[in-house]
Simulated scan of single mutants.
Amino acid sequence: MKKMKKWVGLGLVLAMTAGFTGCTNNSATSSESTSDSTSTTKETESTQSSESTETIKIAVAAPMTGDTAEYGIGFTNAAQLMADEWNANGGVLGQQIEIVPYDDKNSSEEAATIAQKIVSEGDIAGVIGHFSSGVCLTAAPIYQQNQIIEISPSASHPDYSLVGDYIFRNNTVIKSEAAASIDIATQDLGKKNIGIISIKTDWGTNTSQVIKDLVEQLGSDVKVVAHEEVVEGSDDYSPAITKLNEAGADVVICAGMYNLVAPVAKQYKQINPDIQIVGFSNAYSQQLIELGGDSVEGVCFPVIFFSESQDEKIKTYVDAFTKAYGTAPSALSSQAYDSVGMLLTAIEQAGTTDSQQVRKFLADLGYDGVTGYTKFDENGDVQKDFIKVTIKDGTFVKMD
C-alpha cells in the first residue's frame, strides 16, 4: 500500500511541476543541463555505489546566492559540521565524508538542472535539500525516478513526501506549524482578529489558505479579518499594512521569511505600535533581529529547535557551530545537521551506500538528534514538538 500511495503522489506532482514555481527567483537554467539523465535506469546510475570512490559524497542542494542564501549556507555549514564529527571518528564504512554544495538559487528551473547533474554524477550517496517547497517539488521527481535519497530540512508542502519512497522531510507539514502559530496568536497573545500577510509564492498561498481553514474551525470568536498577498523582496508593504490595520487586525500572522517579517514589523509599528506579529520557523534567524532592530521586539513564532536551550547535547552542538561559523544555528540549519546524521547512520547500518538498501534503513530509523527524536512515517514525514519563541531585548527567548 505504501508504494502504491507514493507513486500515485508522484503522478500528481509530475502533472503539477510544469507550472510549479514555489519560492523562486526565476533564475535562468544553467547551460550544464543534462536532461537525458532523468531516463537513467534504476539498475545503473541511480543505485551506483560510492564505495569505490575515495570519499562518500553527500550533496547539499539549496540557495547559496541570492536573497535566501542564508538558508543554503546554513544547510551547508550544518552538514559540514556533522561530516567533520563523523570524519574525526573514522568516517563511515571506513571512508571520509565529503559535503558537496550545489547552488539552486532557490529557483525551480535551476533546481531541475542541479538534480539532473547530481544524478549524472553517479557517486552521490544522498541529497540534503532543497529549501522551498516549490523547488523541492520540481527536483524530487528526478531523484525519485533515479532512486537517490533526498531529505529536505525545510519543505512543508504536504505533496512533497508523496513524490515517492526515496523522498523524506525532516520538517513538519505546514498544517502543524500553522496550527502552532495560530495557537500563539489566540492563546498566548489572546487575540481574536487575525490579519494575514503572505508572500506571493505557492508556499505563501498554500500556507495562508491553511491558516484560514484552521481559524474557521475555531468558531465565531476568532476570525481572519483580512489577508494581503505581497511580492517577496518588496521594499514597501504599506498598502497591505494599511488594509490590514483598517480591517481591525490586532495580530498579524506573516507567512514569509525574515526578509518579510522584519520590514513588515518596522512599517506596521509606524502605523500601529501595539500590533502583535507572529511568524513561522523560517523567520527564526539572527538576520531577523539584525534587519528589524527594535521593531521586531515581541515577534513570536514556533520552532522545532531553540539554540538557547540548556540541554547539554544542544549546548555542545550550538557551541561547536558558533565556534566554526561565528553565529548560532537556526532551526532549519539544525534540521539539516540532523538530516545528515540520519543519512550517515542509515548508511552505517546498511553497510553500503547502495540507495535501495540505505532507504530501507532510513525509513525504519529512530534518531535522537538536536531537533528531537525523529522517526519517519509511511510517507517519509515527521511529527515534532514545537517550542514557542519570542524576541526580548534583542535576543530570542522562550515564551512564558
Rank of each mutant, 00 (worst) to 15 (best):
S181F: 06
Q217F: 01
Q267I: 09
V135W: 04
K375W: 04
F280P: 01
F301P: 01
S46F: 11
H157E: 04
G248D: 08
D381Y: 03
Q217S: 13
A265H: 07
I387K: 05
A115Y: 00
I347Q: 02
A59G: 00
I124A: 01
A350D: 09
V264G: 05
T24R: 10
E378R: 09
T345F: 09
A79R: 06
E216A: 15
T76A: 09
Q383W: 10
A331M: 02
I241Q: 06
E110D: 12
F301W: 11
L344Y: 04
D67T: 15
G341A: 03
W203M: 05
E177W: 06
I277G: 05
V230I: 13
Q335C: 07
S52I: 01
N245Y: 12
T138I: 15
I184E: 06
L343C: 04
G293W: 09
T205A: 11
I151Y: 03
G94M: 02
L189Q: 07
T353I: 08
K323C: 00
G66H: 06
N206V: 11
V210F: 03
N282G: 08
S208Y: 09
S33N: 09
K360C: 00
V135Q: 03
I196P: 07
D294V: 08
D235K: 14
Q276W: 01
L137V: 00
T371S: 13
D67C: 00
S220W: 00
Q209K: 12
S330E: 10
A155V: 04
T395M: 14
M399C: 13
D319C: 00
F386N: 04
F386M: 08
I196L: 15
K57N: 15
G190A: 06
D385L: 08
G72M: 03
S281L: 02
Y143R: 02
F280M: 13
G219P: 10
A226M: 11
A265P: 04
S152N: 08
K42V: 09
G366L: 12
M16V: 00
V224L: 11
K360D: 13
I199W: 10
N26H: 13
T395A: 15
A112S: 15
N77H: 13
V389E: 04
F396L: 07
G94C: 05
E232N: 14
T47L: 13
Q116R: 11
C300N: 11
T40K: 12
K6F: 13
V8D: 10
D338C: 05
I391C: 09
I304F: 00
N193D: 12
I124F: 01
V251K: 08
G394F: 10
R169C: 01
I271M: 15
D338E: 01
L332I: 11
G256C: 07
